[in-house]
Write a protein that binds this DNA or RNA. Sequence first.
DNA 1: TTGTAAGCGTTATCAG
DNA 2: CTGATAACGCTTACAA
Lengths: 341, 341
Amino acid sequence: MSKLKSAPTLDDVARRAGVSTATVSRCLNTPERVVEATRKKVLSAVEALGYTPNFAARAMVAKRAYTIGAIIPTMENAIFARGLQAFQEALHLHGYTLLVSSSAYKPEIEEEQIRTLVARGADGLLLIGHDRAPRIYEYLERLKIPALVAWSFVSESYLPSIGFDNRKAMFELTERVVGLGHTRLGMISGITHGNDRARLRLEGVRDAIQANGLNPETLQVVETTYEIENGAEAFSGLMSQQRPPSAILCGNDVLAAGALRRAQDMGLRVPEDVSITGFDDIELARIVRPALTTVHVPHREMGSKAALALVEMVEQKTRTSAQRLETHIVEGQSLGPANSG
Amino acid sequence: MSKLKSAPTLDDVARRAGVSTATVSRCLNTPERVVEATRKKVLSAVEALGYTPNFAARAMVAKRAYTIGAIIPTMENAIFARGLQAFQEALHLHGYTLLVSSSAYKPEIEEEQIRTLVARGADGLLLIGHDRAPRIYEYLERLKIPALVAWSFVSESYLPSIGFDNRKAMFELTERVVGLGHTRLGMISGITHGNDRARLRLEGVRDAIQANGLNPETLQVVETTYEIENGAEAFSGLMSQQRPPSAILCGNDVLAAGALRRAQDMGLRVPEDVSITGFDDIELARIVRPALTTVHVPHREMGSKAALALVEMVEQKTRTSAQRLETHIVEGQSLGPANSG
DNA sequence: TTGTAAGCGTTATCAG
DNA sequence: CTGATAACGCTTACAA
């Protein structure tokens, strides 16, 4: 009665190679502790059978699943894709598998996903941003699950973060805008509730306005979800006022692309009639015309550094130190001097 | 010596409730087979200890991980994002977790990922397209791992597919193009080797050319990877010939966006000077101006149907039947009549 | 209805 | 250097 349907096990390999399972295991994990001849026999048996170690068994004894979970707000737009891809690649290099799920920007879904991932044995977790219910942190703390926040660097936070300073980035961009003479500003922001990235970006704008002695009232803000169409709608709303802004800062490139599109549909020239800026520097920013002036975020760097840090936290059981990555402004053609008229 | 650092086990719960581990297990899995009083005791012990079943142990004995693996060519562009998101959501509804990895369009990486996912206990697999080494199918067959192909419907294939007819979709689009009087056609195709979607789309174009009595030589083809910049480069290449095409069909929207961008940078008007079409109908297609005339693919429908079918295959151990989903042409402004000049 | 005990596929500890 | 053998945490016959 040969094994017909299930994957070959260590035992099958051992039998075929005429050695014990322990030896096979050693060949695979600590080959240097096995003599050349044996190793050869074993490896060819492995090959012949197409053996792959059973993960569950390995995880059980190791008490380690070699799995990192990540919960991102959405898979549907490119904001997180590049960083996540890098994260996955780096994890793979270290022998870890990535388990992703998306929360659709809903806190209660995120919480459920966290529990699911933990139950599935995630050894560590990557979360986006810092805003969440304290009980989640307590839960992770109690279970001693290492977790890391990406996409938002905050020096004093419950979890260590590897990310960039959203506020500072937006502050700098706004300074640039103000420096070009704009005094009536609009901001199309993401929903700030429960989203520290969005909130900090908005604060960055406000700070810059204040720092430059402009009246805070000059800033008109619309909050909306990150969809192209919403960016377009928000843009119309802002521009249909009596004294519309001469520059619109957008919470990300997706919103900016929508705004830009609508501007053109309304017959407004960008940047002559109105300037528009983005954030993230995703591919989209370079495709639209005029290309967006935006904030470059080192997505891949962030992803791979987060992976490294998380693996280290898992393996050394240490709390990693936060890392702040630098952003910089990318010059497109969507930002120009304020119309002196 | 109390357990300090590791998660509570069945045994801990059993001890605390004063019952055997079997009873605890039953309380959790088949509560109706346990008398009320016992169940209460057990559940409160579970509660008090914050017990969560160890996933690896459960997977090992059940030989079922409630996990579906998916290997997609890339996470970096939006082609697969929407469908995958829907796939994940539907899976989640059925109590399954999705394990994704991306192969970067490399067959050998895909093969490795398949083995990894299987080793990790994936109960079923979602693969993209049909082109892969036969040994992979043998492997899946031998291990009796249900697998399904999406993004490409082919009626006679080794694995059942839930997807659309790439050839037919492109055939129809090409007919539309030819119907507008275009007789010099260009195609910017994805790499066809190992990618049946790309190959079938190209064949669709060829078929339509033949069906309409045009000389096959009128079609110029460039193959390149799916990146905006490559679409742009390919476009320049095609247009720098003596008698450049009057219409360029692109293998997907990403390539089309690149072509469109380059057209504009070259001072060509679209569609007056040259028509450009896309494929996929991702958001990008609607953002660029002119908006792309493209082929709409029901990504979300495909994702959720694939999830359903796969879960069924896993649970009933049946082979599902293939499903062909319909595509349709989306009218943008990037396709116009051939310039009579 | 509940308990006992035999695995599931690995790894790790000891002997040999 | 290699081979028994005991865990790991859970489910599931089989007994009681």
